[in-house]
């Protein structure tokens, strides 16, 4: 860890924002663990039908993920062109992800038409509406807080959950590809995130908005998981 350079004073706004986001993350994670579905996983009682319910509910919101990022990019002005580029690349990388959820659902014994035709649950409705609402604002930098929460799920929870689901349900790894894939591929997200945050965090009010957006996103995401019947 010694090769990592200490932060400079100019980056203090970014560092402070990251400290606050670290706390928001832990609070969000605790809320997730309090939901009936995640409790079942923590208690070693997860069933294949719990997994299918998770995929079916996640898919409706993941499908929107790349869309709100793209909408946010289109509201970033020329002065923040670099951030716009990063967001557009990001949207492109993720916009097929929900297809993996469909494949996993079928591999776990579900019917494609069921996952494709399912409605958003209450939490997903609220989460998606919130994201598009924020993304429609000029220079919607607060959404970095939403990315912090959602990408944190990819880099920290996906693999842990994927492995636990494989162990508890006996499903083949190929049926848990979305979770296992994200866990394997999200390693550099913190570096990318820090680079984006550095571009905007020093401006007045931005760090507060990023933290607030992380908090709201976390609450709505937890509601989405809470709404999954087990």
């Amino acid at each position: 860890m010694n090769e990592l350079a200490p932060i400079s004073k100019a980056d203090e706004a970014t560092a402070s924002c990251l400290r606050r986001l670290g706390t928001e993350w832990a609070d969000f994670e605790a809320r997730l663990h309090a939901t009936p579905l995640v409790k079942r996983l923590d208690q070693g009682k997860f069933r294949v039908e719990d997994y299918r319910a998770l995929l079916l509910n996640l898919r409706q919101q993941v499908k929107d993920g790349a869309c709100w990022i793209a909408r946010a990019a289109s509201h970033v002005d020329e002065a923040h062109f670099e951030l716009r580029s990063i967001l557009m690349r990001h949207a492109a990388t993720e916009h097929r992800d929900y297809k993996m959820l469909e494949q996993d659902f079928v591999a776990a014994g579900g019917q494609l038409k069921d996952i494709q035709s399912a409605d958003k649950n209450i939490g997903s409705e609220a989460l998606s509406a919130w994201m598009f609402h924020e993304a429609s604002k000029p220079n919607p930098f607060g959404l970095l807080g939403a990315m912090w929460i959602i990408e944190g799920l990819g880099s920290m929870k996906a693999k842990e959950w994927g492995e636990a689901i494989v162990a508890q349900t006996g499903l083949p790894r190929a049926a848990v590809s979305f979770l296992l894939y994200h866990g394997d591929n999200d390693d550099d997200h913190l570096k990318e995130f820090e680079a984006m945050l550095r571009l905007v965090a020093p401006a007045p009010g931005v760090a507060d908005r990023v933290v607030k957006t992380a908090r709201v996103t976390g609450r709505l995401y937890a509601l989405q998981i809470e709404e999954i019947a087990v």
Partner: peptide, 16 residues
């Protein structure tokens, strides 16, 4: 590693 990286980025790592 993810925790050490966060501590460094958040200006909060105390050198080893």
């Amino acid at each position: 590693r993810e925790i050490v990286e966060l501590l460094v980025a958040a200006g909060s790592m105390i050198s080893e």
